[in-house]
Every structure is written in C-alpha cells, then in structure tokens.
C-alpha cells in the first residue's frame, strides 16, 4: 500500500468523464438484452394501437381523393327515335343552364362496347345488348348542387329523355361527410397521441425502474443523472424510430387494402390498380405528432427516474 500512498500526482486528476460513453453503450445493449421482450412487443403494440387511426386517416385521404377525382355528373338516356342532332341540341341546352366540365354524346355501339369490355362479355352478347343513345354531362367540382338538381329535373321532364341518372347526391354526401371525417380524425389523433404518451411513459418507467439503483450508484460516483439515464433516453429514441418506421411501412399496406376493398364494394370489379404514392405531408405530420407525444411520455418517465435516482442516492439502507 506504500506505493498507493506515494502516488500523489493523480490525487487531483479528475479528468473529463469521456469514459461515460463506453458505459452508456454497454448499458444500452444490456438493457436491450435484458428487456428483449419489451423491445419487440413495445413498438409492435404501439403500431397496433395506431392502426385504427391510420385506417381513419387513410379513409379520410381516400374520400378526399374520390371527391377530387369524381366530379358531379348527369347521365341522360335518350329515347330510341332521338337522332344525333337532337341529342346535340339537348346537350347544348344543358350547357346553357349550368357551367359544364365536359359533355359527351355516347352512341349505342360505343356504350355496348364499353360495358362488354368492363364486364368481359363475349362478342355475341355485345351484339345482343341494345343501349340507348346517352349524353354524359360532367360538371366542375364547385358546381352548385341546387342548379344541377334543377337541371336533372328539367332533363327528366323532357319527352326525348327516357331516364336520368346523376351523382349529385353522392357528391353532396361527400361534401357533408367531410366535416364528420375531420372530427373523427381529430378525436382519433388525440386518442392515439394520449396512448402514445402513456405508452412511452410506462415503457421507459418499467424498463428503467430495476436500473435506478445502478444509476444512483453512478450518481454517487459523480455521474449526472442526465448522463447515467442516457441509455434509457437512447432506448426511448430507438423505440420511437421503430414505431415511426413501422407506421410508415404499415400505412401503404393499409391504403392498398382499403382501396381494393372500396373499389370492389362500390363497383364489383377492380377499376384501377391503387397507386402507392409516398406518404403525403398530412400523414407525415400525423405520424410526427404521435411520435412527439410518445417522446413527451419518455421525457416524463426520464424526469421521474431522475427524481428516483436522487431519492435512492440519499437512502442509507
């Protein structure tokens, strides 16, 4: 021990704790190993809890997409005797009543061809089908529904017309449901945010609690709580990143499933292959909100752990 006594050069050599880094990463890996169940189930459960919200969000954006691409339209079925000239005259009358986006006169043969193609009918059946001459009037998205309804009534009353089909009601419904969607979306976002916050808090508290005694020992060795709890902070960030990535992976799959289901449900056949675009800004903002809420929960947990470290450090037994 005489050697130790003489070693006075290092008596005041309390260097900068760069050694904390080694401790931090080894502890992080230790925490991952010890809590492997939480490490897998935690983010998975959070993604699972976010699924309802993601589904609502996808439905909202899809309804927005439908509204944008499906303009209100009136399809007018003409009587058999009505000539192309008279059909054109009727179309002109319709255009005079309201602003139109596009007017198409569909000849009976073209209509039969389209239907046969859509329903995969044979050439014989295509020949057998007799469609009337049709006028398809497409209106701009912002067209006044009242004017369109009046126009539909006017056309229906015309002696040359056998039937009128319009999507005005659907368009009005889409406009009416938008405010409901926004409400449901806001509630869903708040609910998922609160769940993320609570989950972040409890996950880090549960993982950190058995580690408090060790962190208080580190505190007594002169390591600030903020540094000794760094492995937990990193763990929280890693779980948050996994959560975000998981949601980003799950979302396109949800959209794909939903668009296919909606197409089949409404049209009884697949119209188009749904496009898998990159997540839009709305989705990214919503996901960022959920991850931020989760991180707030982690922060609360870390703060509580810091208080527990101080308490544990001053315990004598």
């Amino acid at each position: 021990m005489a050697e130790l006594n003489q070693d006075k050069n290092t008596f005041r050599s309390h260097k900068n704790p760069s050694g904390n880094l080694g401790y931090c990463w080894s502890t992080f890996l230790h925490l991952l190993r010890v809590n492997w169940g939480f490490s897998i189930l935690g983010p998975t459960f959070m993604i699972y809890c976010s699924l309802p919200f993601l589904l609502i969000l996808a439905a909202f954006l899809y309804s927005d997409h439908i509204k944008e691409h499906q303009r209100p339209e009136i399809t007018v079925f003409l009587a058999e005797k009505v000539s192309p000239d008279k059909a054109a005259l009727l179309a002109k009358m319709a255009a005079a009543v309201s602003v139109t986006y596009q007017i198409t006169i569909i000849e009976p043969k073209t209509a039969a061809k389209k239907v046969a193609k859509t329903l995969n009918l044979s050439a014989d059946l295509q020949e057998a089908i007799k469609f009337p001459r049709t006028i398809q009037i497409i209106f701009p998205n912002d067209a006044d529904p009242l004017v369109l309804e009046e126009l539909a009534q006017l056309l229906a009353a015309d002696s040359r017309v056998t039937g009128v089909y319009s999507t005005i009601e659907t368009h009005k419904l889409l406009q009416r449901t938008r405010c409901h969607w926004v409400l449901i979306l806001s509630i869903g976002l708040c609910f998922t945010g609160v769940i993320s916050l609570l989950f972040g808090y409890f996950l880090i508290t549960i993982i950190g609690r058995p580690h408090i005694s060790e962190m208080s020992t580190m505190f007594l060795l002169g390591v600030p709580s903020l540094e000794s709890s760094r492995p937990l902070q990193i763990l929280g960030l890693v779980f948050g990143a996994v959560y975000l990535l998981g949601c980003l992976v799950v979302y396109p799959a949800l959209v794909r499933g939903m668009t296919i289901s909606v197409d089949w449900f409404f049209y009884f056949h697949r119209l188009n292959e749904p496009k898998l675009d990159l997540p839009s800004m709305k989705i990214l903002i919503s996901l960022a909100f959920m991850v931020v809420m989760y991180l707030v929960g982690v922060l609360f947990a870390i703060r509580k752990i810091h208080v527990s470290i101080m308490k544990s450090a001053s315990e004598n037994e």
Binding site: S13, N16, G22, Y23, L221, V223
Partner: peptide, 9 residues
C-alpha cells in the same frame, strides 16, 4: 475500475 473509467484514465 468503474470510477477510473469514468474519469477517463
């Protein structure tokens, strides 16, 4: 050795 590691020796 932990305190020495933390001191960066």
């Amino acid at each position: 050795r932990l305190p020495l590691l933390l001191q960066g020796h």
